[in-house]
Write a protein that binds this DNA or RNA. Structure first.
Lengths: 221, 221
DNA sequence: GTCTATACGAGGATAGAC
DNA sequence: GTCTATCCTCGTATAGAC
């Protein structure tokens, strides 16, 4: 496999080719530990191996660094949800267990990626100080995910796989526990503590939720 | 009602008597907006109306200020859960709806208090940078609340009011959605946005959850 | 317990040579 | 695009008079 041009990189943060990428990588690492105001330009450039003044060839100021990081997060997170157009097909060809287990796996893969993990932490740390982070949280994370799930449940209800409850209620009941369990998961990983308990809770939640809302076709228990 | 001595104050942050209290009040406000490292001693003392050097008569350094704030939060949060000894009595004398609605109201009162709201935000902002905040989150908030609820559900299962599911699963299903909804609620309030939608979701969650796990005595639907 | 004065390193950012 | 040199403000913290 030969090395390709920038445009063809798989993950925008996995291959570091340019100084700008390197700055971003270091900034993400430092911000995710100490927060934006806890990290200085000096610290970033020292770690990158350039002088402070050189950084300003790539970013006009400190704020532009974190703004770029937020944009990066937005793009990465958007990839975790499959396009709505494909949904009906996907749902037709899988059981609801398969669908939610697959979705959970996808998401876990996303959040387990070291860079994404750090991006999430930055959002958590900055979401009160920085209004872009806050909007990202409220719109891109919460709202988009819930809207996506609403559509999922609408379809599943039409397909008679799920009890005819209000889709927005179902979406909330499924997703809100996930948000806080994921936050806890990320916190535990930060301290390199054992995550098996919270991972189990996530799986149990999916099971319990599906058991609660599923229309059981075979046994009609 | 006459003014009493410090020891008898209702809320440790409502009456500001001493310079130390004033410093804490200002620090809480500033930290909750800009984070610990985003706020300087100069800024705090300017707001309080004293010189920088005077602050060091009350706190040995900047870190001691936030440590004190964390301790304050711990105490305030502990008040939101009724003592376990009284639980059985309380549960005997109320329906499960009443119990959970009352618990929710109590908690909402706690989090709506402006000072507590700020304390929560500080925990959110600092919980990756500061290990005390992180422990507070994992132990005092998450673990304690879940342990408390486990006991509640054990009792309710014994009283045949709730289906005989595993208490820890019930506690998780009830509480984890609450954590993230409360985070969203706090975020919306920060921007003074409308909170009626998320408040509704919280209420709907309690309803849905109770409907799911309740043993219906009268109709056995 | 508050003040003035002071120390001194760290902060973001720019000008201009190479 | 990187460097050296420089700017000036802000940062925490202390000494010592009142």
């Amino acid at each position: 496999m030969s090395r390709h041009r920038k445009k063809e990189r798989k993950h925008p943060l996995t291959n570091i080719n340019t100084t700008k990428d390197k700055i971003l990588e270091v900034a993400i690492d430092l911000f995710s530990h100490k927060g934006y105001s806890g990290v200085s330009i000096r610290e970033i450039t020292r770690e990158v191996g350039i002088k402070e003044s050189s950084l300003y060839n790539h970013f006009k100021n400190k704020d532009e660094i974190i703004t770029t990081i937020f944009e990066l997060f937005r793009n990465e997170f958007a990839k975790t949800l499959p396009p709505t157009e494909l949904l009906e097909d996907i749902l037709k060809n899988s059981t609801i267990q398969q669908f939610f287990e697959k979705g959970f796996e996808n998401f876990k893969e996303h959040i387990d990626h070291p860079k994404n993990e750090k991006l999430w932490r930055i959002i958590y740390i900055e979401h009160y100080r920085n209004s872009i982070a806050r909007e990202l949280f409220l719109n891109d994370i919460i709202k988009n995910t819930l809207s996506f799930l609403e559509i999922v449940f609408e379809i599943l209800i039409m397909q008679k796989k799920i009890k005819p409850l209000r889709p927005s209620l179902l979406a909330a009941e499924y997703q809100y526990p996930m948000f806080s369990m994921l936050a806890e998961y990320n916190m535990l990983r930060f301290d390199q503590k054992d995550t098996s308990e919270i991972e189990n809770k996530m799986k149990e939640h999916v099971e319990f939720f599906l058991d609660t809302v599923r229309v059981d076709e075979s046994t009609q228990k």
